[in-house]
C-alpha cells in the first residue's frame, strides 16, 4: 500500500524523521538502549556526549546495514551476482552480520575520530566502545529491517531521527536526575527506583505524540483513495490513446 502513496519525496523524509524521534522514540516506545540510558544519565554533560555518539553511530550503521540487507541478506538479494544465486536466502545471518558491521564500524569510527579530531575524540572517545553493545544501535538496524524501509535515503533519515530521539530522552532524564537530588524521595526509591518511575511517566507523556501520526494518516488515506481512483482512469485513457495511435 505504501508504495501507492503519492507524496512529495521530502514529505516522506520529514514524516519518518519526526515519527522516529517522537512516536517511535527508541527509549520511550521500544525501550532500547535502557542500560546505558540508566547508567550514564547522572550528569547532563556525560549524557550529551553519549547521546551525540549514538546519533553519529546510528547515522552510519543504519544505512550501511540497509545496503547489506538489500544486496546480501534478503531472499533473492544476491541476484546481482548472477541468476544461479537468485534464490539464495541468507536472512538467517542478519543478526551476526549486523552486529559484526556495528562492532567494526564503531572501532573504525573511533580510529578515524582519534586521528582527525582529537577534541571530538576527547568528548566522545570513552563512549564509543560502550556503543557497540548498546541495544539502541542494533535495534535501529533490526527495526529498519522489520519495518522494510524502502530507500537508502530513508534509512539514513531513520537512523538520524532515532538517534536524535534517544539523545532527547537521555538529555531529559539527566536534567531531571540532576534536579531531583534536592527533592525528598522515599529512601528506598532513591536512585534507580525513582528513575524508572519518572521514565514511565515520561513514556506516558510521549504516547500523546501518537496522535500526530494517526491524524495525518487518516487524511493521507482519503487522499490516496481519491488518487488511486483517478490514476487508473488516466492511465487507462493514456493506454487507450497509445493503442489507438498504434492502430
Amino acid at each position: 500500500m505504501f508504495q501507492d502513496h503519492i507524496k512529495i519525496k521530502n514529505m516522506e523524509h520529514i514524516e519518518l524523521f519526526f515519527k522516529s524521534i517522537f512516536i517511535d522514540n527508541m527509549v520511550f516506545a521500544t525501550f532500547l538502549g535502557m542500560c546505558s540510558y540508566l547508567a550514564v544519565s547522572k550528569k547532563v554533560s556525560t549524557a550529551v556526549g553519549l547521546g551525540a555518539a549514538v546519533i553519529f553511530v546510528l547515522a552510519i550503521t543504519v544505512p550501511l546495514n540497509w545496503l547489506l540487507d538489500q544486496y546480501v541478506l534478503q531472499p533473492g538479494a544476491l541476484s546481482w551476482l548472477g541468476a544461479e544465486y537468485a534464490d539464495y536466502d541468507l536472512s538467517f545471518l542478519s543478526f551476526i552480520m549486523f552486529i559484526a558491521t556495528i562492532a567494526t564500524m564503531v572501532q573504525l569510527v573511533e580510529i578515524v575520530v582519534e586521528k582527525f579530531s582529537p577534541s571530538l575524540y576527547n568528548s566522545l572517545g570513552i563512549f564509543l566502545p560502550l556503543i557497540a553493545v548498546n541495544c539502541a544501535i542494533l535495534g535501529g538496524s533490526l527495526f529498519m529491517q522489520s519495518r522494510e524501509i524502502a530507500t537508502l535515503g530513508l534509512a539514513t533519515t531513520y537512523g538520524i531521527g532515532s538517534g536524535i530521539g534517544w539523545f532527547l530522552a537521555i538529555l531529559a532524564i539527566a536534567a531531571i536526575r540532576e534536579k531531583i537530588r534536592y527533592s525528598n524521595v522515599p529512601p528506598a526509591l532513591r536512585g534507580l527506583g525513582i528513575t524508572f518511575i519518572i521514565t514511565g511517566l515520561m513514556a506516558i507523556g510521549f504516547m500523546s505524540f501518537g496522535g500526530m501520526l494517526t491524524g495525518g494518516d487518516e487524511e493521507a488515506k482519503e487522499e490516496t483513495t481519491v488518487a488511486a481512483q483517478v490514476v487508473p482512469t488516466e492511465m487507462n485513457t493514456e493506454l487507450a490513446n497509445n493503442t489507438k495511435i498504434e492502430e
Binding site: T195, F196, I197, G200, A203
Partner: peptide, 14 residues
C-alpha cells in the same frame, strides 16, 4: 501499555 512495565519494575525495586 509499555510505560506501565517501567512503573511495575520501579515498584519491585521499591
Amino acid at each position: 501499555l509499555s510505560p506501565m512495565a517501567l512503573i511495575v519494575v520501579g515498584i519491585i525495586i521499591w
